[in-house]
Write a protein that binds this DNA or RNA. Structure first.
Lengths: 206, 206
DNA sequence: TCCATTGCTTACCAAGTGGTAGGGATTCGG
DNA sequence: CCGAATCCCTACCACTTGGTAAGCAATGGA
């Protein structure tokens, strides 16, 4: 359904023995870090396997191909993120605040942000194994914001569609700036959440 | 001065014979396309060389290493872009319009946009050969917009620094959305320039 | 016309790539 | 405690990677 459509390409599902499940999680974490550093094309299965404390055919035992591994990483992160967001909403937090919470959480998980940046940028090429995944992701994100803004009082003259595009673009773009700022002095670190908030206050005069 | 600091790492400078200069330009074009497709780490010198109609040691004759080639590509594009922008300004075009013109020009040169996306995303890692280049680039871009907005009447409560960050983030983020939209139906293609304009009208009530 | 510079080739290298084969351990339900 | 499923290893495969060595041909200033 996502990239390949095999019956159940080894994800974090509770199949197999306990030891295997643990290893699979370690592999996913290592893969996240390596994909984040050098992108999908630049990553090597041996490097990922070494970080997970396993041989590279051992890795391929759990995730049969490199694209399958990428798919599992992306799927896993989506699950974690959406459940956290939904939990915030269920707790009665507004969409506005739930969004900022998401940005703040991301600010503490640098490898994840780097992963989506690096792989997402590669995936603009239609031949990339995660291309469709990212196209869908963007469509969903824009729709989410458009629907939200359609039910709010926007600053005069601003279309919900445009505001939605702005939001998605800002989240992406600010993440790059934040990552780039991490090498420098800490006081010059970009504050993504604050920057997002100032845009929302600009758009929603409420 | 940029990445390496050799005496004059073979760029488009008018050194050597005419034939060599032509080849160098072809190589830069091919490299732009390939880096754009698969990023720096994913690109292969042989692939680039083949597209430029040369053997891969032939390529290394002009650009001695892979990072040197990347440096030359980035430097070349900066020169082209800034001279075009400066020409617009000299023609009496406002910064506002010159910026939109830049966005519109980019919209017609997809490979370039893909290049900066793909390489820029990889380059968040401090070990990347173009890391410093991109850090400087972002600092300059934010400064440019901050200084501009400081001399304009901004919507109440919006800091020039935040607005500058927004602009840079929007340009980056909209480019991703635009690239992702290119596979789909043409009428759903993202209009970067229009989207940027709507933000500027939001921020500069003039 | 000489001849150093430049341009570019084929041949080669060690290292790393994703993936396969096959076989020993380990695990755990029956 | 048996036996099937799972785990994961070493060894190997063909192929690609960035870079080097050595040499030959074209160029263009003297």
């Amino acid at each position: 359904m996502l990239i390949t459509s095999g019956p159940d390409p080894d994800t974090t599902a509770k199949t197999g023995y306990a030891r295997g499940r643990v290893k699979r999680r370690q592999i996913l974490e290592a893969a996240t870090a390596v994909f984040a550093d050098v992108g999908f094309n630049g990553a090597s299965l041996r490097e990922i396997a070494a970080r997970a404390g396993i041989s590279h055919p051992g890795l391929l035992h759990h995730f049969p191909t490199k694209p399958a591994l990428l798919e599992a990483v992306l799927k896993h992160r989506d699950e974690v993120d959406t459940t956290a967001f939904d939990a915030d909403i269920a707790r009665g937090v507004s969409k506005f605040e739930a969004l900022l919470l998401l940005a703040e959480r991301n600010q503490q998980r640098r490898p994840l942000v780097e992963l989506f940046m690096a792989v997402g940028a590669e995936a603009t090429s239609p031949a990339h194994p995660a291309h469709e995944y990212f196209v869908n992701r963007y469509e969903q994100a824009v729709s989410f914001f458009r629907e939200w803004f359609e039910s709010e009082e926007l600053r005069a003259g601003l279309q919900p569609e445009d505001a939605a595009r702005h939001m998605v673009a800002l989240m992406d773009g600010l993440q790059v700036q934040w990552l780039m700022s991490l090498g420098g002095p800490p006081e010059r670190e970009v504050d993504m959440a604050a920057c997002l908030r100032s845009y929302l206050h600009l758009v929603l005069p409420a």
